[in-house]
Design a protein around this nucleic acid. Structure first.
Lengths: 205, 205
DNA sequence: TTCCTGTCGAACACTTTGTTCGGTTTTGTG
DNA sequence: CACAAAACCGAACAAAGTGTTCGACAGGAA
């Protein structure tokens, strides 16, 4: 078996440059694709392992040789999408920025993958997606805020609270925006978010 | 059967004052209690219908005569807790208030029922609880904002967006606070929330 | 080629779900 | 009290899904 009973994707993976058997790559990608496609077709929580392996044309035992269960596979898939988004952010965002944080990238990414996001959020697997997103965002925010503190600013409110507050607000607006079929373009909804967020931050010092 | 295949609790229930059979009341309460207790003991998503009816000492068929499934029961339970909270809010909150909205009551309620909240949020059923909470909060906010608009204020940002933003931030902070074992008393965390929320609102006009 | 490692797929034991139905008990009411 | 209606019991069931095992096989690396 590729790797038996552990969520190996969770491991830091020391890299070590092992090229990874092609067969492994294929089945992984196949399963990722299968799940992704299926999510666009039916509620996530109604998707069964059988559905996935049928679609991916993969043996049952093979599935369990790679992932612990359906959710493990989803986590993996989300991690991948997350990295994709992260790269995009780095590439797109210019070094200096008058915004607090790259929130626009989130909206753009969500807009680009709107079908997936929506299916995810209304299909019962929303927790994971939102948690992942919130973590990314919180982390970025905390960095930004800590930097300010180092520059001598004194904040009235602990940074974790602020980060959590803003990240939660972000995900909430994002969710709503998607659920309403995106009544505004990404730039516009982001402007609103920024308009709401900035006053709070300025009032902090 | 009491009522066959519909989530009757979802019905507006025109009341009509039918006293409701004692047996029905008992089994309902029993099931509510059972689920509540079980949630304090094990992850919600690991709880089975069998667990519930064993604990409540109720026949299998009886369960399905009252609720569609485990989730339906949970929704019911949450609705009840929600009403409890609502009553508390009405009773506690003085008519005039310098705060935007009764956010403190949320924190107090969460603090009082901290075990349940925490178990819920980390047990896989968090979606429902947060959704319910967010809806309550959003609704209250929207009323508040609409009132302002009627008084002649012009808002730069549509009220639904603002309500969603603030409600999401609220639930996020609440979640974090609970996950961290409530490092501050309810009043203090609420002050922080208000301190973050008020500037946004004032910047709206 | 030669090994090694993944993959196949059928079979299996197990858990959970939701329904059915005849028989029993409890309520509300006259 | 008595009696009909309503609710409950519980065993049995079909159906679906889960996760594991194992011998046979095939594709890839060296």
């Amino acid at each position: 078996m590729p790797q038996a009973r552990t969520n190996k994707a969770a491991e830091p993976n020391g890299d070590a440059g092992k090229p990874v058997d092609r067969r492994v790559q294929r089945t992984r990608e196949g399963l990722h694709h299968a799940l992704f496609d299926l999510i666009l077709e039916k509620r996530y929580d109604k998707i069964t392992v059988q559905d996935i392996i049928d679609r991916a044309n993969v043996g049952r035992s093979t599935f369990y040789a790679h992932f612990l269960d359906k959710e493990d596979l989803l986590e993996n898939l989300l991690r991948q999408l997350g990295e994709q988004l992260h790269d995009e952010t780095v590439r797109t965002t210019p070094p200096a920025d008058d915004h607090i944080v790259h929130s626009l990238t989130f909206f753009v990414h969500a807009h680009a993958n709107r079908d997936f996001y929506r299916a995810m959020l209304s299909g019962g697997g929303g927790d994971l997606l939102l948690d992942t997103g919130r973590k990314h965002f919180t982390e970025a925010l905390r960095q930004h805020l800590d930097q300010r503190v180092e520059e001598g600013a004194v904040l009235k409110i602990p940074t974790p609270v602020v980060a959590q507050y803003l990240a939660g607000a972000m995900m909430s607006v994002l969710t709503w925006w998607l659920a309403q079929d995106m009544p505004y373009p990404p730039e516009e909804i982001d402007d609103m978010y920024q308009a709401l967020a900035l006053p709070s931050i300025e009032a902090l010092t």
